[in-house]
Amino acid sequence: MAISDQNVRHLAKLANLALDDAAVARMRGELEAIVGYVEQLQQVDTTGIAPVANVAGLVNVSRPDVPGHMFATKEVLANAPAKNEVAILVPKVVER
């Protein structure tokens, strides 16, 4: 499976990873090797087999819709790297 530098850059954008050129080149080789290994799955005949996402056999788990524990604003903000009294701060997203 050939993966191009352009493919890797597109994936890095989707994955929100700011990879530099050296990382792109290294990642391309590593991904090619692993994807090449994973290709063996194509050998398995899976015609008519339903994909498995949950092995516990649970279906449509529901719970009563009642308020539970809530974190106070101070607790929610405690770990934020940039904040004021009531909000998390981020760079400006709308220019005007």
Partner: peptide
């Protein structure tokens, strides 16, 4: 902020698996 924080914070193996 997203893309640089992640690339600075995650190690090589974690980045590899996120990409895969």
């Amino acid at each position: 902020v997203y893309a640089k924080s992640r690339v600075e914070g995650f190690g090589a193996e974690v980045q590899r698996r996120i990409m895969l």
